[in-house]
């Protein structure tokens, strides 16, 4: 049985994604009718681009684990997350 590793930092991209998902729902629900500053209204299309940006950020964050293989609390080794990037043991 390998050592459990309670390094929750490993799940940072997932946290970002989940937080971003929550933020999108909040934005959609509570966007003030009068708008904020210059942004008068938020249409559905721009929500899509915001979501895309979130996913992109998560991608960039997960680049941290390039060249690493980690046994996490879930024994999530990172080699598939950073699929396509050589993992050095």
């Amino acid at each position: 049985m390998p050592e459990a590793n309670f390094d929750w930092k490993l799940l940072a991209p997932e946290y970002i994604l989940v937080a971003w998902a929550g933020m999108l729902i909040m934005l959609d629900l509570f966007w003030p009718a009068g708008g904020i500053g210059r942004w008068k209204r938020l249409d559905k299309e721009s929500l899509g681009y915001i979501a895309a940006a979130g996913a992109l950020i998560a991608v960039l964050v997960s680049l941290i684990w390039v060249d690493h293989v980690v046994s996490g609390v879930l024994r999530t080794d990172r080699c598939f997350r950073v699929r396509g990037l050589r993992a050095v043991r």
């Binding site: 991209p13 997932e14 994604l17 989940v18 971003w20 998902a21 929550g22 999108l24 729902i25 909040m26 934005l27 959609d28 629900l29 559905k44 929500l47 899509g48 915001i50 979501a51 979130g54 996913a55 998560a58 879930l74 024994r75 999530t76 080794d77 990172r78 598939f80 997350r81 699929r83």
Partner: peptide, 23 residues
């Protein structure tokens, strides 16, 4: 729309986890 995109991101989380899981 908000929930729609949220679900897409959650699906991504799920897939990430599937690929990373070793348990």
């Amino acid at each position: 729309a908000g929930e729609y995109y949220a679900f897409i991101l959650l699906a991504v989380v799920g897939a990430n986890g599937m690929a990373a899981a070793s348990e």
